[in-house]
């Protein structure tokens, strides 16, 4: 059984513009197969169809056409049955009860997810320890900081040990430490067997959690492969960091962009498709008394930025 399977899944929203009605295709004939235990990042610019996809896969939205199954269930037909097996976090909105103490919220969710009282207590104790929530249990949710609230949000989504986790920007607005904590917890859930379906604009989330990336743009899947491939395939640029034994002057090599110059160092960027790596490196080794040289792929942020800027369409 697959965790997620979609066949030509399509969602069209009707919009009213004055008296006219226009159709907006949010998700366009998407075919996907995600195996149990995978960790998949679903990437795309705002309005690309990511959240619409999650909402269809969790049964909140009915598709216009096409089919989908999550853990063998049709989400919009068996939403409640499916809800017992999946966990969701919508980073930009809360699933907690703002006026209740945070601990009460976890207990209430335990009951809603049909856990026996003893199991709720045991699972809560486990999550409280894992997320270091002990001192926050009596604090009303409305008084928690964003980071504290997000720890409770993730804990709440894991209370029933879901087989699939749908995470829609789970680290949005968090500081570096809180992000690292949340990522570690998601990785741990994945190691325990949960399939992770993540949307995020944060390259750190994608690199540290997902092994597979699916890029969606204007409702279409435009890339589906390993995260490492995403970097190589999407941006053919290479970054060269050079450390010289003598003071350096920027090279004059067509097709090579100088990104940074210091007294003894250079950072250069070039397209490996247009300029062979050996030609660039050969030129540098010839020109400078090289102390150290590193060739790397551009950071994932650059890849995502390129996707969002529509460079793919331009190519």
């Amino acid at each position: 059984m697959l965790a997620v399977k979609t066949e030509r899944l399509t969602k069209v929203f009707e919009r009213r513009e004055g008296r006219r009605r226009t159709a907006h295709v949010a998700v366009d004939a998407v075919d996907l197969e995600i195996g149990l235990g995978e960790a998949v990042a679903f990437i795309g610019p705002n309005g690309a169809g990511k959240s619409t996809m999650i909402k269809m896969l969790t049964g909140i939205l009915h598709p216009t056409t096409g089919a989908a199954e999550v853990l063998g269930l049709v989400p919009w037909k068996a939403r409640q049955q499916l809800a017992l097996q999946v966990g969701t976090v919508f980073g930009q909105r809360s699933q907690l009860w703002f006026h209740l103490p945070a601990g009460d919220t976890l207990r209430l969710l335990g009951a809603i997810y049909e856990l026996p009282p003893a199991a709720v207590r045991a699972r809560n104790a486990e999550l409280v320890e894992r997320f270091a929530l002990q001192d926050l249990l009596l604090v009303p949710v409305r008084k928690l900081s964003l980071g504290q609230r997000m720890r409770f949000e993730i804990a709440a989504s894991l209370i029933h040990r879901p087989k699939v986790l749908f995470l829609d920007e789970p680290t949005v607005g968090l500081d570096v430490i809180a992000k690292a904590e949340v990522r570690e917890v998601i990785r741990e859930a994945n190691r325990d067997g949960a399939t992770v379906f993540l949307t995020s604009h944060d390259a750190g989330d994608i690199e540290s959690i997902a092994r597979r990336a699916i890029v969606i743009d204007e409702g279409h899947v435009v890339f589906d492969d390993k995260v490492s491939q995403l970097r190589r395939q999407w941006l053919t640029d290479k970054v060269v960091d050079l450390r010289s034994e003598e003071e350096v002057a920027p090279p004059d090599l067509p097709g090579v962009v100088v990104e940074k110059v210091s007294r003894y160092g250079l950072r250069l960027r070039f397209s490996a498709q247009e300029l062979p790596v050996r030609q660039v490196v050969g030129h540098l080794l010839e020109r400078y008394p090289v102390h150290d040289i590193t060739i790397s792929d551009p950071p994932l942020e650059s890849v995502i930025a390129a996707i969002y800027q529509g460079r793919a369409a331009a190519r």
């Binding site: 969790t58 049964g59 909140i60 939403r79 409640q80 809800a83 919508f90 909105r93 699933q95």
Partner: peptide, 14 residues
Amino acid sequence: RTGGLASQLTRPVS
């Protein structure tokens, strides 16, 4: 309006 319905509808309760 806030989209909070998304969380409500993904719970196993009517």
